[in-house]
Nucleic acid binder design. Structure first.
Lengths: 168, 168
DNA sequence: GAGATGTGCTTCAAGTTCGAAGCAAAAATG
DNA sequence: CATTTTTGCTTCGAACTTGAAGCACATCTC
């Protein structure tokens, strides 16, 4: 067996639990706010937000799913809902018949703009109000490094990634 | 309007996204491992782990749900599954006929012991291998502070908490 | 101490999630 | 090129999650 399995020390355990609890609570709070403010789930908001960030507001389904860390079938389902509300559009890609290109509609862009201030407000209130500038810098840099590390070492079953993968 | 809604600056946004992505990836990885190793979902493991930590391996349903940040009905469902597998036991509380006390069985305790090393291993590999001791300390202390802040300011709709609430 | 209110858990229905299977188009292989 | 393999998405079934409604016990109020 090549891996050490000594127990995590108390400090590591604390950091791990804190990370999971903070992210869970934050997600719940944000989700609740998004629902009240724009009838969007957290996942739906993530999809729209990611599109907002993309060039021309367009992304292929797969790239979208990867960005949101979400199953393909789940994305198909949510895309159906969003399309029904006219927040996005799905059209076959011109260069590759298999691909579907998801485009943000004006309505979608509007809705994101509408809920964004509240969203940001919740995040700031919960996550940042308790932090000093120095803490924030530390948190960002440490988590950024962890993220790179994780992307490099994907969860066992993952296939080798396709490379072109935009940062959120 | 009493709240400032200036956009989060780039640093804050980066930290927020990194936090959410790291926790999601970590959760997926851990979930996959638990399933392979002991046929447990992450939620189920959390339930069992929390019981392992509790005095006598017993907790009331409500306390359990609070600890896991989980809906009551969802917990009932999962408790049913765990009971069917003889990992826990449910018995009415002697002092309060309404309450149900969940107890970890020996089988349950054994299963936790069985999957724990792998679980820890995944967490260490993904979360801690990329961190120096100093970073770890920073992460733990910052997240710990955030957690306290969040617990103090619960997500809008939450009822005033009951007070006796053990730290994970 | 009877009636109103609150608490703890379960049941229920509706919605969401995922992986496996299916299907079509593209790329790789010979 | 014909055949195999891979890729991108959707459909399908089964499992999970949740809030609301329901039920039983406890607590409060007069």
């Amino acid at each position: 067996m090549s891996h050490e399995t000594a127990p995590l020390d108390a400090e590591q355990l604390g950091a791990y639990f804190a990370l999971m609890e903070v992210s869970t609570l934050l997600q719940h709070a944000v989700d609740e706010h998004l629902r009240a403010d724009g009838d969007l789930s957290y996942v739906q908001f993530q999809i729209l937000a990611r599109l907002t960030d993309a060039p021309d507001g367009k992304l292929r389904m797969t790239d979208l799913a990867d960005g949101v860390v979400y199953s393909r079938s789940g994305l198909t389902y949510q895309a159906g809902l969003l399309e029904k509300r006219d927040l996005i559009t799905r059209t076959p890609a011109p260069d590759d018949e298999r691909s579907v290109i998801v485009s943000l509609t004006d309505t979608g862009r509007g809705l994101v703009a509408q809920v964004l201030p509240g969203h940001i407000d919740v995040v700031r209130r919960l996550l940042f109000d308790s932090l000093h500038q120095r803490d924030l810098a530390a948190l960002g840099s440490v988590l950024g490094r962890v993220r790179e590390h994780m992307r490099a070492a994907p969860p066992r079953s993952a296939k080798p990634r396709t490379g072109r993968h935009r940062t959120i």
